[in-house]
Design a binder for these strands. Structure first.
Lengths: 214, 214
DNA sequence: GTCTATAGGTAGATAGAC
DNA sequence: GTCTATCTACCTATAGAC
């Protein structure tokens, strides 16, 4: 029988064993990291026996890879679409921040997971991951910024730093959320509301910094 | 015999066993995290037997705590000094960015270590850490920004977001360095040079964003 | 204080019944 | 495909010699 991927989600069919494993593994790996995750805990979370994990994914490494690549690919496609869109710069910045923050609000723990696991591994591994076609690739945006600088439409700024600023201001509050929540004395709900308002703040902050003063 | 802490550093005396353990544990824990670190590997790095680690620090948890608290405290004191300094806002921003980036360049792996370990643990643990007198505390800076807004010396901006922007732009490039290095096709040395130049870029970026247009 | 040896527990992975 | 039982390796921690 050909399994339709969307069937489980849209028609209330019980998830396949493989999907249950992946869902459980995602939770545990993202929360505890590769080294801290236990196959037993993933099996418990999936409501099944440990042996089944090995039946479906052979070993911990392969199960982890499946989870990691899915997490890694969650961000790039939509962002690359924006990076490469044919759109005025200020509008593109606003769109980028809005959509990036939306994806982050829906997947708040993925960035720290991906970053930590990339930190753990050798440069060769990172190179392999980043040669994937689904990697983030801001080159088109960098060229567009350079062009706007040359035309005198924005102040003289190094495009690499501008892009790094954009990414940093969006992602860091999610990566460091336990620290920042405690620092600002906010609970989880308040912090998420704060992030929602932050979309507008970041866009304004960037545009005010680069626009030419009249 | 009273041991002088600076003796080992300034007079070339051989480091004490305890200091050797701490130095080795720092390397391993920061590189691999608590869950990924092995007592055996720390002992090997320190050039001694595993049993000695337990003799000096009782267990893995206590050794980790010693390393973690030292790492955590590395940043706060100097930054709090700047946060609370009696200094014009723009000058304070420049000083903050300069000095923060310097500490980061000297300790590039500590932020991802601290952030990951705080992510792993319960809110109670984070609260305990953050009630420490050596915690980062930007309250004075936030008040100062609010005051400058009210006086009309800078544009109307939410001080919490401004502070979050400052921290994000400084720290994130270190936390996500494997990813960003690969994205920008830089080797380690080039990336560090890029970070050195970034000091000026960040200060300018912030000040251009908040200053009143003439 | 420092070492070797080992206890005691837990992890990933496999074998084999159903 | 799914379960139980178990193997083997490894990890933390301790015991005890020197």
């Amino acid at each position: 029988m050909v399994k339709l991927l969307w069937a489980n989600k849209y028609y209330g069919m019980e998830a396949s064993t493989e999907d249950k494993i992946l869902a459980a593994a995602k939770e545990i790996f993202i929360q505890k990291g590769y080294a801290g995750a236990r196959m037993q805990e993933i099996a418990d979370r999936a409501g099944m026996n440990k042996g089944l994990l090995h039946y479906y994914f052979k070993n911990k490494d392969k199960l982890f890879s499946a989870v990691f690549m899915e997490a890694f690919r969650k961000f790039a496609p939509r962002l690359n679409q924006i990076f490469e869109a044919d759109m005025p710069l200020f509008e593109k910045i606003e769109t980028y921040v809005d959509e990036y923050m939306d994806i982050l609000l829906q997947n708040p723990m993925i960035p720290s997971f991906v970053i930590h696991e990339l930190n753990q591994r050798q440069e060769e591994f990172v190179q392999e991951i980043m040669s994937n076609k689904d990697r983030p690739n801001p080159m088109k945006l960098i060229v567009q910024i350079q062009s706007e600088v040359q035309k005198g439409n924005i102040r003289d700024i190094n495009p690499l730093h501008l892009v790094m600023n954009m990414i940093s201001m969006c992602v860091f509050p999610f990566v460091a959320s336990p620290l920042l929540k405690q620092l600002l004395q906010m609970d989880q709900k308040t912090y998420l509301q704060f992030m929602e308002l932050r979309k507008k703040e970041i866009s304004t902050f960037i545009i005010e910094s680069i626009k030419i003063k009249k």
